[in-house]
Amino acid sequence: MLVALLIFMLGVLGLVGLQASMTRAQTESKVRADAAYLASELNGRMWSDLANLASYDGTGCASQARCSEWQSKVGSSLPGGTGAVTVNATSGDVAVTISWTMPNGETHRYVTHTTVAKAAN
């Protein structure tokens, strides 16, 4: 009886560990999806504001109200989230880098590159 109880308890502990692992993976996946969404959102903002594309460049991009609003959204949506934007105004090449730190201390980064420019006539 005691051996059966011991085996049952080990099985339950294994299931609890599996559940914790699945929860951690689900949380990391959600945060990665949020980072991808936020990067796409900024790309959309830049597409709708081509005249001020150069002002989006830099980590703080405080000179551009739409970009600083996006920065605060990154900070509130992701744990320890920060966003940086690099814009080459002549070619329209844009790199959006979003970094965040999970509660266990792991730091992650999501980087996307795109071109935001007016169509050639």
Score class of each variant (00 low, 15 high):
N52T: 02
G60D: 09
L38H: 10
N88D: 05
M22L: 15
R109K: 15
E41C: 04
S40P: 00
G11Y: 11
D93V: 06
S76H: 15
L2M: 14
G83P: 02
G44W: 07
V94L: 12
T101R: 06
Y56M: 04
S77Q: 05
C67V: 05
N88Q: 04
I7D: 12
L10K: 14
Y56I: 03
I7R: 14
K73C: 01
M46T: 01
T115C: 08
A51S: 12
T27G: 04
D34P: 06
L15I: 01
F8L: 13
L5W: 12
F8I: 07
A39P: 04
G81D: 03
A35S: 15
A35R: 11
T27E: 07
G92Q: 02
R66L: 08
G11M: 13
M22G: 08
R32I: 06
S40V: 00
V111T: 14
T115W: 10
M102R: 08
T90E: 13
A39W: 04
V85M: 07
G14W: 09
P103S: 10
S48Q: 14
A117Q: 00
A65P: 07
S77P: 01
G58Q: 14
N43V: 09
D57W: 01
T27K: 07
T82Y: 08
V116A: 04
D49Y: 09
S99I: 10
S76L: 15
T107K: 13
A51R: 14
A33E: 06
G81E: 02
T82I: 14
A84I: 12
S91T: 06
K30W: 10
E106P: 00
N43C: 07
V94T: 06
L42G: 01
G81Y: 03
G11P: 11
T101Q: 04
R24V: 01
T86S: 15
I7W: 14
S21R: 04
V16A: 07
V96P: 03
M46S: 00
N43W: 08
T114F: 13
R45Y: 07
V111Q: 14
S21Y: 01
T90A: 14
E28K: 15
G105W: 13
A84F: 11
S21E: 01
L6W: 09
T112W: 00
P103V: 06
T82M: 13
A62E: 11
T112E: 00
R66C: 00
T86K: 15
A33R: 11
G14Q: 09
C67P: 02
W70D: 02
A20I: 01
A120Y: 05
G58D: 12
A20M: 02
N121I: 12
A119T: 10
S99V: 12
V3K: 12
A120L: 10
A95E: 09
T115N: 09
R109C: 10
G11T: 10
